[in-house]
Design a protein around this nucleic acid. Structure first.
Length: 644
DNA sequence: ATAGGGTTAG
């Protein structure tokens, strides 16, 4: 840039400055950019629209947002582009208040916002949880005619509703979209999955891959041939229609045409990583495998995507296929990132392999990856689920002293869990009392769980007071205390609590288990005799019970939670949904095949004993996944070794 | 020239 300092300056036109500034921006060369800026100022060149834009662009590209803003405020801005650029830069640094301020200022200045503006500002509203603002903008767009808005604006609105938890509103927009693109699909799918609607998410995914099957072939192909704007839906449904009618050649011809003409309509990497958590949360191993196959079929551009492989590893872990998960994880050389390790560590923890989780954590650090708050949660939970108290403390200290990470509520919850499970109830109580931040219901809830495991009714009552004060509407905790009373045979107190729950109109979730056999999911609800094979299952369970008694196992009657005679209690235990599902699996799966059962709540101790026994007598592995933990039963013992 | 959709934790 020395030539700028020549005493005899060549005359430089405004467009030259523009070109140089553009270059400085692209090369992120702040030094040169600043020099050009000062030359412009010295020569009294008027900073008009385009020059101003380039100058702002140069500064923000070099990461000098506030400098860019200074220039932005100096120039007269009539062009929407520069406003969008500026708003977007503030969105990148999550200064949403400034985004909204600029947006309003822009509207007041009479500048018409365009689709870029709307998309960006809706993202801000979603990220800052400004539901009211988003709704206002929705109304504004309706007045402008939403149907005429570009697909991306409607997608942004859809995604806004999904992110603030209003999935039905998102779905309505989705259904009314005249033209969906891959982003619309992905937003809808991730919206469902993030809001606890894994089933719906999977439904939309399936719809995406193959929709509109029920159509008349002849008229469909007429319509199809005439349509100039084809979407993924029209292509896929047409292909599907041909193949259903046995016209395979036509289907294949169309598929070739589709992938040649508009290959972009395939579910892409983001679709895949949206849908895998749904499979994970449902333990839908077969569906997950199919999606893995899709990834492999689509070649390396998907398999090389870390997001996808991480999501796949997580899916296999949550479907109970730990070995598969690990081998996939091992193929990620050398591209394992923090998330990959965190997933694997959490996976070991969930499956009761605390030592392996610790080993993975150390290995990660040796690989030079710095753990963050989430990875510490994973390793702390792994310690607590395996009863590794000292190691847990060690990591809690490392986190604060070495890694300078302030423990959050989740970390404290892990520590309380760790102490409570291992029976150090008093210590856990003191620990909570000494916390520098206000404990929430989950913290006290963890201690309450510990009180149940170690049968401390007195402490449980004191702890429950805190919990009820913090979350008076959460039925889970009343049920937990009722269980503690019942296990101590304090039936009066159980009754009182039942009345309390009833008075508050709280509903407890019924226990429910499910198992996949020959591609069909069979659901069992506690005490529900509606499954056609329930008689056969009960007969099997009775036989198992007899066998257990002969070998000296007595039923864990204290977990039957009702005040009655022993026979009645035993009957109640037999109705537990996880027993029914396991029994069904043993009766219907081929010999030697692993029985995989999922349950929505925690597994009961009696069912746990029975599963151990059955794994020995039937000679098969049983994998039982409850609301937050895996039990691998093999040869009469369980991987959890009693810690859960 | 600028935008909208992704993986981990209770």
């Amino acid at each position: 840039m020395e030539w700028f300092r020549l005493s005899e300056k060549p005359s430089i036109s405004s467009s030259t400055y523009c070109a140089v500034l553009q270059l400085c921006g692209e090369l992120k060369s702040l030094q040169d950019g600043k020099e050009v800026h000062s030359v412009i100022s010295c020569n009294d060149v008027q900073i008009n629209g385009i020059l101003g834009t380039r100058l702002v662009f140069m500064y923000v590209s070099c990461g000098e947002l506030s400098q860019g803003r200074l220039v932005f405020d100096q120039v007269v801005n009539e062009k929407v582009f520069l406003w969008n650029l500026m708003i977007n830069e503030y969105a990148k640094v999550e200064d949403f208040a400034e985004c909204v301020y600029l947006f309003q200022k822009m509207l007041n200045a009479g500048i018409a916002a365009d689709s870029y503006t709307f998309s960006c500002i809706l993202k801000c509203f979603a990220a800052s949880g400004s539901v009211k603002n988003g709704e206002w903008l929705h109304g504004y767009l309706l007045k402008l005619d939403l149907a005429a808005c570009s697909c991306s604006v409607v997608n942004s609105l859809l995604s806004f509703y999904a992110k603030v938890g209003r999935v039905e509103s998102a779905r309505k927009l989705f259904d009314e979209l005249p033209q969906r693109d891959v982003v619309s699909w992905n937003s809808m799918i991730s919206g469902y999955v993030a809001n606890g609607g894994s089933e719906e998410g999977l439904e939309v995914f399936k719809l995406m891959v193959s929709s509109g099957v029920e159509i008349d072939l002849a008229s469909a192909s007429r319509v199809f041939e005439k349509t100039s704007e084809r979407s993924v839906v029209s292509w896929t449904s047409m292909i599907q229609a041909y193949s259903r009618s046995g016209l395979l050649h036509d289907a294949i011809r169309l598929f070739h045409e589709m992938t040649m003409v508009s290959g972009k309509w395939e579910p892409d990497g983001r679709t895949i990583s949206c849908i895998l958590p749904a499979c994970a949360s449902l333990s839908a191993l077969n569906m997950g495998r199919q999606i893995h196959c899709h990834v492999l079929r689509n070649g390396h551009h998907l398999s090389d995507d870390r997001h996808i492989t991480n999501a796949l590893v997580d899916m296999y872990i949550k479907c109970g296929a730990l070995v598969l998960a690990r081998s996939l994880f091992d193929t990620m050389i050398p591209s394992k990132d923090l998330v990959s390790w965190t997933v694997m560590i959490a996976g070991y923890g969930m499956h009761g392999f605390g030592k392996e989780a610790i080993r993975a954590f150390e290995e990660m650090r040796r690989d030079g990856i710095k753990p963050d708050g989430v990875s510490f949660i994973s390793v702390l939970y792994a310690c607590s689920h395996s009863g590794l108290v000292n190691e847990g403390w060690r990591f809690f200290n490392i986190m604060q002293k070495e890694c300078k990470i302030e423990p959050s509520l989740e970390h404290y919850a892990c520590m309380v869990d760790l102490l409570s499970r291992s029976g150090k109830l008093q210590m856990a109580y003191e620990f909570i009392k000494g916390m520098p931040i206000k404990p929430d219901a989950t913290i006290w809830g963890a201690l309450l769980c510990g009180c149940r495991i170690h049968h401390d009714v007195k402490l449980a009552e004191r702890v429950a007071e805190h919990v009820f004060e913090l979350e008076p509407e959460n039925a889970r905790y009343y049920v937990l205390l009722a269980n503690i009373y019942a296990e101590a045979e304090k039936w009066e107190e159980v009754k009182e609590l039942r009345v309390k729950i009833g008075r508050r109109g709280l509903k407890k979730h019924p226990g429910c288990s499910w198992i996949e056999v020959k591609g069909k999911v069979h659901v069992f609800v506690a005490k529900d005799g509606s499954h056609p094979e329930v008689r056969k299952i009960e007969a099997l369970l009775r036989k198992v019970r007899e066998g257990m008694k002969k070998e000296g196992f007595s039923p864990k009657l204290r977990y039957a939670l009702m005040n009655g005679d022993d026979l009645e209690k035993e009957m109640a235990l037999c109705g537990h949904s996880e027993k029914l599902a396991m029994g069904f699996g043993i009766l219907n799966l081929p010999p030697g095949k692993t029985v995989r059962v999922m349950k929505n709540l925690r597994v009961c101790r009696d069912c746990h004993e029975m599963a151990k026994f059955m794994s020995k007598t039937t000679g098969r592995e049983i994998i039982l996944r409850d609301s937050n933990f895996f039990h691998h039963f093999k040869d009469g013992s369980c991987s959890c070794r009693g810690f859960w």
